[in-house]
Design a protein around this nucleic acid. Structure first.
Length: 813
RNA sequence: GGGGUUGUGGCCCAAUUGGCAGAGGCACAUGACUUAGGAUCAUGCCGGUGCGGGUUCGAGUCCCGCCAGCCCCA
């Protein structure tokens, strides 16, 4: 009777004929605009269970907005540059485009079957030259503004992927993509100056009240704003003082030694000749270590004395200068003042090398020099001259005043955020549109010569060799300088694919636009995105970069908003038997197979009904078969209605009408607040109520039954479009139910003529009264006190009576 | 180690934000229909909310301390 595959075969072609979910660009369209966006997929094979969940969730929201009468933009595209395509191409001796575009077609077909309400006319792929041309155009704008620049330095290198990585792409010392342990290399690379926007990236988070708190926290931690001071230390024998950054300038009197990052150029520069050999040996050791090893707090501290002394600017004390690996060359200035009494790492180091420990904050804890436990907490200052007796805040203010007076320091804000390293030594990405000319230097490819397309390389030519495969395409590399026409070479690196995804949501307003990366007029209408749905794994990658791009584009006058995503929903993972699905565990569940077995609607319903969207779904705990049964039940109810289309519901059964309208009211609120699983539960209840009305109530011909069934069809259409469409047709309507309009609850049918009031005595329920919903406190109290069931528990006048009309009376005897 | 978050029937999950702990589903049991039932319809079943304290007339909900899981940062 319920054959989901037959319904799919019946309805899909009909929907395909039109583009029913096309967003209207007609300025006369009176509907308010809404922009619903799912994070676009990477085309690695077919859609998987995770896609099934995200897109089911996003589609509920988009379809709800369609039903509510908004002009909805719900586009789809592909994040189609990236390493897997390249690796596949090497393996098959093919071009990455072949694998990529074949997978895109596969996914597009799966999306169609999965019945997501996309506007297919706006489809884009980031690997199309028409798209990445605009990456290059934007790069040129960033370059002009000084926001794209090249510099040398230590960078993160993934030995497996054979390319550099941005800091954000190193997670716990490992490559975010492949998990290989990242090493440090000295290389010249391109960067985006995201640090210029650090302050705004933090401050603007205030306005992101539609974002999950944990994502905001992660971004705040990542940007890592701290307030402290820069303090200038003279190094004996060096003209220029060395600046250190500290968050605890109040402990300056407790600085007993000075540490320079072993791999910082400064270490080699200031090292006394007698210690040079030791330093070189040490640096060689450190170079072998990964960042994970370097920063592990339980690691034995190592370091070498450099044979020179620094002068503490506040008390003139000579303190020894050491090189160590626990100081990183790219944090602050690559050097620190060490205050062992109040910092555990400094203390560990001091104890290892017998350096003095000077307590300057009296915290009430035992002496760190004795216990080996540093006391980082607050207290009153001691042994600190003018700071003695002050608390932390006052001491910081005072010391900064002193430092500024003497010109040896100042208050500073420091960020942990580093500039975004964007060049990659791989093929399948956007070529960096720079030409290196021996005379003119770095020359951007003129806008009218964009795009710089990729040379035609395939198979073995793409194999990673530590430099970009583009370098081997000599015809491509050697060009005339756009400025002086002399011989020059193209930059052979490609852009991080996170550049592609930093602005794709703007391009959707007109993916064929040729006047710029996006139509600035149209984006005024659609932007910013009302709801963004995607995985938590992008909390500090894509989402941070997109926010940065949006702010730059705002400064360029191209968008009129400073934050791209008003509301963010991070769906959970689909797991199986308590664990992430993986080949090695053999617990994978295939989306296509689930759909073949249970139908699209049942799979979508299972995803939505399983729990709150943010929670993980354990596929072993849910039942697509049960979802299928429910859909059959709902469809039967819709099929059994015998009253004619247009039957006046006002003449129908009042009890069922009340249930229908109450359900509509509740489901509306639930969908508005993303509580889709509860909304489904309410729809199930309405289905049961309608079933009963048909079987043992007013019967299938009652207009209220039609009203209920129609509401059911529309509400169900958010989750189960095929069954809803079929039901809608059986109810005598023309397609499509998707655009039928959201039902509205009649307030008159929401009022209850009586409610149950609970009467408690000392918190225990002793009676229930049927009362009018607008009963007064006084009436209710006397009614409750008069109750026969309550009397036995009372002795005399109660001490207190709490009345919460009309629902509760609590008598304290 | 620091921060965040979660903990409710056998299982997945609700609970108007301080007011009757139970909506929905799974599983299980019983009955009806039936040639048959793994279909359908109906009925039923089980817990006092991780543990310990506190605030309150009243705590799943708020506060404090522990335990466990998950996620970030070290």
């Amino acid at each position: 009777m319920y054959d989901p595959q037959a319904l799919q075969a019946k309805w899909l072609p009909r929907w395909e004929e039109s583009n029913p979910f096309a967003a209207s660009e007609d300025p006369a369209d009176p509907r308010p605009a809404k922009y619903m966006l799912d994070m676009f997929p990477y085309p690695s094979g077919d859609l998987h269970m995770g896609h099934g969940e995200v897109f089911a969730i996003g589609d509920v929201i988009a379809r709800y907005w369609f039903q509510k009468g908004y002009n909805v933009l719900h586009p789809i595209g592909w994040d189609s540059f990236g390493l897997p395509a390249e690796n596949a191409a090497i393996k098959r001796n093919a071009h990455p485009a072949e694998w990529t575009y074949a997978n895109i077609e596969t996914q597009a077909n799966s999306f169609r079957r999965y019945a997501i309400s996309f506007d297919w006319s706006r489809r884009l792929h980031t690997s199309d030259p028409e798209y990445y041309r605009w990456n290059q155009w934007l790069f040129n704008r960033f370059f002009e503004r000084g926001l794209a620049y090249r510099k040398g330095g230590l960078v993160n290198w993934c030995p497996n992927d054979q390319t550099v990585l941005a800091n954000e792409q190193v997670v716990q010392g490992r490559c975010e993509r492949c998990g290989a342990v990242v090493v440090r290399r000295e290389l010249t690379q391109w960067y985006f100056k995201i640090t210029d926007y650090a302050e705004r990236l933090v401050d603007d988070m205030e306005s992101l009240d539609g974002w999950p708190e944990r994502v905001l926290t992660m971004q705040r931690n990542w940007i890592g704003r701290s307030t402290g001071a820069d303090v200038r230390f003279q190094i004996e024998g060096r003209e220029e003082p060395v600046t250190v950054y500290t968050t605890r300038p109040d402990t300056l009197f407790g600085a007993t030694f000075f540490v320079v990052a072993a791999d910082a150029p400064l270490a080699a520069e200031i090292c006394a000749p007698a210690h040079r050999e030791a330093l070189e040996a040490y640096r060689a050791e450190v170079a072998k270590l990964t960042d994970i090893e370097r920063l592990a707090t339980d690691k034995e501290k190592t370091g070498v004395f450099l044979g020179v002394y620094a002068i503490n600017p506040v008390n003139g004390e000579r303190i020894p200068v050491w090189a160590a690996d626990y100081v990183l060359s790219d944090y602050g200035h690559g050097a620190i003042m060490a205050v062992p009494a109040h910092d555990q790492r400094d203390l560990d180091f001091a104890r290892k090398f017998d350096l003095p420990v000077q307590v300057v904050v009296h915290t009430g804890m035992a002496d760190p020099g004795e216990t080996g436990v540093a006391t980082p907490g607050e207290g009153s200052l001691v042994n600190s001259g003018p700071l003695d007796g002050l608390n932390k805040a006052a001491a910081i203010a005072k010391i900064i005043e002193i430092l500024e007076e003497r010109g040896t320091g100042r208050a500073t804000i420091n960020y942990r955020l580093r500039d975004w390293l964007l060049s990659r030594q791989r093929f399948w990405g956007t070529p960096i549109p720079i030409i290196h000319c021996p005379d003119c230097g770095e020359v951007p490819v003129p806008d009218d010569q964009l795009p710089v397309t990729l040379p035609d390389l395939r198979g073995e030519a793409l194999a990673p060799k530590g430099i970009s495969p583009l370098a081997s395409a000599t015809d491509w590399v050697n060009v005339a300088c756009p400025k002086c026409a002399g011989p020059a070479r193209r930059d052979t690196d490609t852009m991080d694919t996170f550049v592609d995804s930093s602005w794709y949501f703007l391009r959707y307003v007109d993916p064929a636009y040729t006047g710029g990366p996006f139509d600035v007029e149209r984006i005024r209408k659609w932007g910013p995105i009302d709801q963004y749905v995607g995985g938590i794994e992008h909390a500090v990658l894509h989402l941070l970069y997109s926010r940065f791009f949006t702010k730059v584009l705002y400064d360029m006058g191209m968008v009129d908003f400073t934050e791209p995503f008003l509301r963010l929903l991070n769906q959970g993972q689909v797991i199986n038997r308590g664990k992430a699905m993986s080949k090695s565990l053999g617990n994978g569940v295939d989306l296509g197979e689930q759909i073949d077995s249970f139908g699209v609607d049942a799979v979508r319903l299972t995803m939505i009904f399983a729990g709150p969207p943010e929670d993980d779904i354990d596929w072993a705990d849910v039942s697509p078969a049960a979802s299928q049964k429910f859909l059959a039940r709902a469809l039967r109810v819709m099929s059994e209605v015998t009253s004619p289309v247009g039957a006046d519901p006002a003449t129908g059964d009042l009890e069922l009408r009340k249930i229908t309208h109450r359900t509509v009211d509740e489901v509306t609120r639930l969908v508005d607040t993303n509580r889709f699983n509860v909304a489904v539960a309410r729809v199930m209840e309405l289905t049961t109520a309608t079933r009963r009305a048909i079987d043992s109530g007013p019967g299938a011909g009652d207009p209220a039954v039609r009203e209920a069934a129609e509401a059911l069809a529309v509400m169900l259409s958010l989750v189960a479009p095929y069954a809803a469409e079929e039901g809608w047709e059986r109810l005598g309507h023309a397609p499509s139910v998707a655009l039928a309009g959201w039902p509205t609850a009649d307030p008159a049918l929401l009022v209850r003529d009586s409610v149950t009031c609970v009467v408690q005595v000392a918190g225990k329920v002793r009676d229930r009264l049927d009362v009018s919903p607008d009963i007064s406190d006084a009436d209710l109290e006397s009614l409750a006190l008069a109750s026969e069931k309550v009397q036995p528990y009372l002795s005399g006048v109660p001490r207190k009576v709490i009345v919460r009309a009309p629902k509760l009376v609590n008598i304290v005897p």
